[in-house]
Design a protein around this nucleic acid. Sequence first.
DNA 1: TTTT
DNA 2: TTTT
Lengths: 164, 164, 164, 164
Amino acid sequence: MAGSVNKVILVGNLGKDPEIKSFQNGGRIANFSIATSESWKDKMSGERKERTEWHNIKIDNDNLIRVAEQYLRKGSKVYVEGQLQTRKWQDKDGNDRYTTEVVVGRFNGTIELLDRREGGGMSGGGDYDQSRGGNDYSAPARNSAPPTRKPSFDADLDDDDVPF
Amino acid sequence: MAGSVNKVILVGNLGKDPEIKSFQNGGRIANFSIATSESWKDKMSGERKERTEWHNIKIDNDNLIRVAEQYLRKGSKVYVEGQLQTRKWQDKDGNDRYTTEVVVGRFNGTIELLDRREGGGMSGGGDYDQSRGGNDYSAPARNSAPPTRKPSFDADLDDDDVPF
Amino acid sequence: MAGSVNKVILVGNLGKDPEIKSFQNGGRIANFSIATSESWKDKMSGERKERTEWHNIKIDNDNLIRVAEQYLRKGSKVYVEGQLQTRKWQDKDGNDRYTTEVVVGRFNGTIELLDRREGGGMSGGGDYDQSRGGNDYSAPARNSAPPTRKPSFDADLDDDDVPF
Amino acid sequence: MAGSVNKVILVGNLGKDPEIKSFQNGGRIANFSIATSESWKDKMSGERKERTEWHNIKIDNDNLIRVAEQYLRKGSKVYVEGQLQTRKWQDKDGNDRYTTEVVVGRFNGTIELLDRREGGGMSGGGDYDQSRGGNDYSAPARNSAPPTRKPSFDADLDDDDVPF
DNA sequence: TTTT
DNA sequence: TTTT
């Protein structure tokens, strides 16, 4: 439909490391979920309440997948701009089921990393280690390499535009 | 979680008239769905493709419900700003199911009517009367009542702020 | 700066037909301004007040310029997504001056036409003729050609993607 | 004009501490500017280019002013949602001048702090202490006070809703 | 289920 | 004037 807009803007934290899936045709996809939360004071009871919402993010753009792979970890704070898509699938009993995702696509959408710094070499996964010194919630820095340049990118960048 | 954002921005057309539900405690809710669609040219085949997406909108604010009731109809084009919420429910077999909605709430969100005219009583379908003289921006359909003020409102308006 | 976002979302009406400027290097630019307005009830006086804001839009993308040229007219209602840019220039006295524009660029941004229909052949300009029957505020339809397909496009489309 | 939208979404860093102005009628205003920046690879030269944009933010809501006062500092990273307003003023020669600001108002807009930690008294610059143990998400700088609750708030909150 |  |  001409004259329509489908846009989602989220700022939240990853619940787990991203999952990358590869397909036989060479295509790849990255999935992760992020939590947003809000708190308010209930008018009736006067209590402070909080609600956390989880959002399924699907990245369908090679450059962004590469960045997600390298930089996003459990706990990372990100700005996500994408569009809503509801997928139909069938459970084991053959019933129709629907899942709504925020898709950061080939031709639209963005991801911006909002963490102040993220060290390189984070292969080991994002186990959250409270005792570990001096690190931001998310990115385990296993070495003393200088902070990597922070990726900033849109879905429409071609390879040459990736800033690293 | 502080420091988070959960925002959806849609422009699309209502698939049906809104449904209003009343609860025993006096509360009300309006539901409708809107379609957004995009078209693109497939890189491989060169064909033009189109994809339509349906979004469930839930309005949880008295003023906006009143406006939806009066002004929104099947086919109406609207700007919707709300937040994503996924609700858990159980089907008849007791299985968990999830439905994602765009909620225009008590304290956030907006709806803007984008149709040029909105006369009263257009439930019977949106027959656009070409022969009618004058201007869509101001002219009400079917009667000589003075032009209805076009509703423009945010979720945080109290009653006195409703412009009609 | 990595991790930054600069986004403007407007829905409003063009104050005049777009102006297209051509440069010696073959480049082109489209400029127009759109009005947004809001009304509210003053808490003190109880009066209803209204404020109209004008926004300078600059289009810096060939496909979008072509569409603006063909479809946008004084009064057209549009959704504009772009970014804020402040330009420095000098007045005749050599004083620095600044102008802020919403730029719909080569690699980001969108324009969506929100008018229900727009006839073809709008060469004559957008004089607003109240006495003219059955037309939407904006687009004078000087012939009986069937309504043109409504353009829907992003800044990153290449030529082949333009839907007409 | 009904049916219009005027929305700006920015994520960037404060260039200086906020300035608070008080008026004789007891009203207050907070001003600060934030930088957003983008980088891209020039198609012609192949060089990487960068452009930084400065945005004037004006906060016109008591709760948000209080938060800005307490939490925002030079270098703070924030999400700002507001609307565009262009103000006319006169320079010393009596010439009309225009300044465009992003206004986070009484009834709309939001500010979200995106920094992992916000301790007190960081006016002296954002020296990030690598050697400090523990976790940025919760640990206040420079003292052993319990973690400050991170402010999350909308323009429409009344006093009781401020989360601290 | 809309719209073009 | 920020940040990377």
